[in-house]
Structures are given as structure tokens and as C-alpha cells.
Design a protein around this nucleic acid. Structure first.
Lengths: 351, 351
DNA sequence: CTGAAAGCGCTTACAG
DNA sequence: CTGAAAGCGCTTACAG
């Protein structure tokens, strides 16, 4: 009854630092220091405090701590979807680095809807994330403005673009597909088709298509409108698209099919097998991602590999370096995809 | 200089509720109510407050709010790994439900290390998660104790076990593999092998193996020690294991191979193809998961499908119901896997 | 090395 | 319907 509060505000019920202080016979300041700046506390007192904390099973309340210290030790990541292992691997890499450094990770999925991405970013900002990673550059300007005006360090992942105003950790999607197309050109192909995932709100896909077109243009070629199939990134769509492409008469049919990813290419290869068609005898085809199955499939799929987990690791490290004040801004890092030449793409057959 | 604080404690630099109140000419209490209990504020004042907030680009500080209200609007999920699409889909389902209800999601991966899972759970508890979902029951007792002693609602996902002391949202792994084994028995198989992922710290895998053994025991059969291959859940291990099993002389060789998941089964099927062996002519094989490729593969893979996204959705809804006080405890929900009978498992061939 | 106390940015019981 | 003010659980500048 001595110093009871005048208003009933029932606490959280959790043990609080004050109780630890009382039990250890020290001030609250000392308890705090014992955990956050241990060298500033004498060996003996430190031990006493830790014993008391353990005995009471105290877990510091992060809200109180965050309010007082203006640190949350929370980082956030926003990806389009977890249904794609590419992004899952990236998150996995980030998660482990952050966790190791005492950061907990918020995860948001935009489902390729920029507004949803913005909403989730706002929710994370309100909760005091100290850094944010977002996939790609296709986001509302408000998102980057919110980050910049609050001085929250961030990186764009998966895309890499020299000219970008944002720190990027990823690879040059355009250059990668330019390279793949050059490979097919060097095999003698002159007639190209493409099977792609949708490019709505997706700067990576747009860049990939541009890479193909750049390479073809340099050889005086292009992809005809009817030879560009765009749809869901499923085996089914890969298969259907392949079937559609093969309805063209042999003379005007593409000999090389560039797919936006391995899944689409594998779907096409399966459809081919059902029709008795074979790569590289009857056509050539390429993918992107180098899924585990792509190398073991028959024919082995020519594709490109990107270490997505590493993208996540690098992104987290850059963000942590900025948070720690080691650098003013996240630095861009370019990852170079590795080309995997296998049997699915061979020399163009004379017709 | 009038009421300046006596101590320099430089704030966060962010706009705060107090400034919104000043601009709108109301008290801080009114600003808070305008957002959290709008009916308690007159139409006109509410509008004035919202305008002021917008003009100042105010985002509420979640730490302050959490401290005062003892609500964080944060939930957490701990899964073994994101490298498995099964868990990625589950998280995806949870994420979207939570996000819709104003909750932000912490994601932790234990990498099948119970201590790491516990550490992440503690970090989440310190940050005030209002609910937690964990995959499976293989966790240190401290984890569940911490949850229970703090009254944090939780669910175990993916596993379902009638006898479990925890609320479970998932399926009965043992029953599923019992069913699959019965299917193979009904096809006349009497000699079984299994290719499985490791069962360390993994109650789901242990239950699956038990399901197989239960079904076999009922038929007076068992799996010989050398016919149980256990290793990484990769195509490679599936392939190697198949090769190893096929080195046995035909008479003592398994005719049915039960795989712990589709990936292992697909690896085995690929190895078979390389050797000129074919299912179901030369052997029968089953998987679990029904990956997209499993139905299109040739032969189509007999397997079982679980809607993992739905598990995530149900888990999030249960947790939200408890948080909202609609029920005292999360309720268990059993999902029933759907059997997909395809060509890879056929009648046992006479030898 | 340690403590008394102010302050972090909100919410909410109380009073009107 | 609105406001004055206490309080949520910590950290930290200041003083010793």
C-alpha cells in the first residue's frame, strides 16, 4: 500500500526489470547495464544480476527497450511470393544472417501487387524495422520515399542495375538473357520463340525480355508477336505454349525457344516428349534458375544458375553494416549468373 | 526554452503523436482515439486529426503503442527450413491471413536444430509476439513452457496427433503412410524398401516410418535394415538409394519402394530410367507431397497431396480467434491428405 | 563502478 | 465528446 499507483493500469503480468533489480539488490540502471554493457559492471554484481534474472525467468520487454533506446533489432523483407523457391532461398539466407546478429525478421509477401507491398512496408516501418530489403524496383515511389525520408537503410534485391538510384544486390537480368540468346545465336539459330512469366509489375522479367531482343536485334532478328507466349509460371503453361508453337508449319517454326525460367522449360520438354519430339534434335530450348531437376532431366536443360541464398546473405550483411554505422549506405553488389550448357540446346538443324 | 527537458535525450527524429495533436488543436488522447476508437470522436474532430496526421506524414510508433496498450500486433512462425516448398506454402498462407488482419509476421527457421528454434522463439517472445506457430512437436520442453507460462497462444502445424497435449493443425503422418503402404499391399507387394529423409528431431518422419511398419506388421512383414535408406532429401540421394537397392539379386529385391517424399521418389525414377528400368513393370514406387511435376512425370507418380497453404490459413485463423478472445485455446484441426493413384505403383509382378 | 531520475511515444482510466 | 495526466518497461545522461 506504500507507493501504490493512483490509477489502476494493470501491467502486462510479465516479470519486469524492476523486479530483477529488487531481487539482486541493485538499481534498474545496473540491471540494464549488466546485460547491455557488461564491462561497465563489476564481475560480482553482474553475476548477481544474471542469477536474479534467471531465477525470475525474466525476458526483457522489447517495447520498453525499443522506446528507450530507439533500437528494435528488427529487419524486414518484402518479396513477391514464397511459392517460388528463388525468393524462399533468398529469405533463408537473410534470415540466418540476421538471426545470428540478434535481429528478428519480418516477412511480407506482395503477391506481385505493388500496393500490397507498400502496405506491408508501412506496417513494418510503424513497427520500427531498422532496415528493409525489397525484391526488385517495381514499387510505388512512396515506398522508397518513406524509406529515404526516415533514413531507413534498404536494398533492392534480385535485380542489379548500374543506373539504379537504389542500392542493388542481384544480377543483371538483361545481360543474362542477352548472354543466353547469344549462345543460341552462336549455335546457328535464327528463328526464336519465347515462353515467359507475366511482366506486369516485374522489372526483372521486362529486363529479361529486353536482353533477348537486344541480342536478336544485333543479329538483325526479332521475336514475332505470336512467338512470344506469356502466362503463369507453371509446367502446364510451358507445355501448352510448346504445343502451340509446334502447330506452326516446320518452315516458319522457331528452332530455339528461350524460356523465362526452368519450370516453363521443363513443362515444354515434357510436352515435347509426349509428342515424340526431342531436344536438341527437333528444337533447342533454354531455361533459367538451374533447379535441382534441370541437370538430371533428360535432356539436361541448358540454363543459368544464380546463388539466391547468397543474395540474401549479402543483402543482410550490407544492411547490418549500415545499421552498425560502418558505412553510410548499402553498397550495390553484382552477382554473375553461371551458364550451364547442357544438351537441351544444340546446333540449329538444317531444314 | 519554456518547458524544455532538463536532459538531452534526442528523440527518434520521427514525427510523433504530440505534434499531430498540436497541429489539430486537440489533446493527445483525442488523436489516439481518432485512430483507435473512431466512434468515440466527433466527425469533425476526427477529420481534423486525420488531416493533420496526413500532413505531417505521421506513422505511429509501435513501441510506444505496444508499451501503453500491451498489444504488438505481431505473430511469429518457426519452421525448419524455407528450402522446402511445403513449409514455404504454409508460411505463405499464414502471412496473407495475418497481414489482412493487421498483424505482421516474424519468420524464424530452425534448420532442424531444436536449440536454434528455441532461441528464435525466445527472441520473438521478447519482442512481444501475440501468438506463435511452430512446425511439429520436436521442440525442447522449454519452448512450450515459455509459451504456456506467458499465456501466449500457439499451434503446432503440419503434424496432427490426437494424443498430443498441443493444439495441432496438420495431418496424421502415421495414418497417411499406413494408408499408402496398404495400397501397395493390396497390389500384391510383399517385399518393401524405403527411401527416407533423416528422422532426427523430426516427429513427422518418425511417424511416417511407423505408419509403414504398422501396416507391414499387420501383414506379418517388415522392412529389412538394409532396405531402409536414410539421407538428404535430394534427387541425388533418391537416385543413389535406388541404385543401391537394385544391386540386390532379383529374388531378394524389394518390389515396392516407399519414399518419404516426392523428391526422393523422382530421383529414384530418374535413376531407374538411366538403367533401363521402368515402373511399374520392374518395381513400384510411391512419394508424398504431389509436387507439380509428379503428375506430369512419366510414369506419373503415385503420391499424396496435402494443402499446405490451407494449413497456414487455418493456423493463423485459430491463433487470431484466441487473440481476439473468441476462444480460450487454439483448436486442433485435422487435414486429410488426398491419395493420388498414378502409374508408378502397380501390381507386384510374379518373379 | 553504481544510482536517482528523466524520458522514449504512446494509451487509457478518470473526470468533466 | 474531450482533456489532463499517469503509466507502460525499459535506457542513459548526469552525478558521484
Amino acid at each position: 500500500m506504500a507507493t501504490g499507483s493512483k490509477r489502476a493500469r494493470g501491467g502486462s503480468g510479465r516479470v519486469k526489470l524492476e523486479e530483477v533489480a529488487r531481487k539482486a539488490n541493485v538499481s534498474t540502471a545496473t540491471v540494464s547495464r549488466a546485460f547491455n554493457e557488461p564491462d561497465k559492471v563489476s564481475e560480482e554484481v553482474r553475476q548477481r544480476v544474471k542469477d536474479a534474472a534467471r531465477a525470475l525467468n525474466w525476458i526483457p520487454n522489447a517495447a520498453g527497450r525499443a522506446l528507450a533506446s530507439r533500437r528494435t533489432h528488427i529487419a524486414g523483407a518484402i518479396i513477391p511470393t514464397l511459392d517460388n523457391e528463388i525468393f524462399a532461398h533468398q529469405i533463408s539466407g537473410m534470415q540466418s544472417v540476421f538471426s545470428e546478429r540478434g535481429f528478428t525478421l519480418f516477412l511480407g509477401c506482395s503477391n506481385y501487387d505493388p500496393d500490397e507491398g507498400l502496405r506491408q512496408a508501412d506496417a513494418m516501418l510503424a513497427r520500427g524495422v531498422e532496415a528493409l530489403a525489397v525484391v526488385g524496383e517495381s514499387h510505388p515511389p512512396e515506398l522508397f520515399e518513406a524509406l529515404n525520408s526516415r533514413g531507413i537503410p534498404y536494398v533492392v534485391t534480385y535485380s542489379y542495375n548500374k543506373a539504379s538510384p537504389h542500392p542493388c544486390i542481384g544480377f543483371d537480368n538483361r545481360a543474362a538473357f542477352h548472354r543466353m540468346t547469344d549462345h543460341l545465336l552462336s549455335l546457328g539459330h535464327r528463328r526464336f520463340a519465347a515462353i515467359f512469366q507475366p511482366d506486369t509489375n516485374n522489372d526483372r522479367v521486362k529486363e529479361r525480355l529486353r536482353g533477348i531482343r537486344d541480342a536478336l536485334a544485333a543479329a538483325g532478328l526479332d521475336i514475332a508477336a505470336q512467338d512470344l507466349m506469356m502466362g503463369p509460371s507453371t509446367l502446364e503453361f510451358g507445355a501448352e505454349s510448346f504445343a502451340a508453337l509446334m502447330t506452326r508449319t516446320v518452315g516458319s517454326r522457331a528452332t530455339a525457344i528461350v524460356c523465362g525460367n526452368d519450370n516453363l522449360a521443363l513443362g515444354a520438354l515434357m510436352a515435347a516428349r509426349e509428342r515424340g519430339l526431342e531436344a536438341p534434335r527437333d528444337f533447342s530450348i533454354t531455361g533459367f534458375d538451374d533447379l535441382a531437376i534441370s541437370s538430371r532431366f533428360s535432356p539436361g536443360l541448358t540454363t543459368m544458375k544464380v546463388d539466391n541464398q547468397q543474395i540474401g546473405v549479402l543483402a543482410a550483411n550490407e544492411l547490418l553494416a549500415v545499421i552498425a554505422g560502418e558505412q553510410a549506405r548499402a553498397q550495390s553488389r553484382e552477382i554473375v549468373p553461371v551458364m550451364k550448357v547442357r544438351e537441351s540446346a544444340g546446333r540449329a538443324q538444317p531444314r
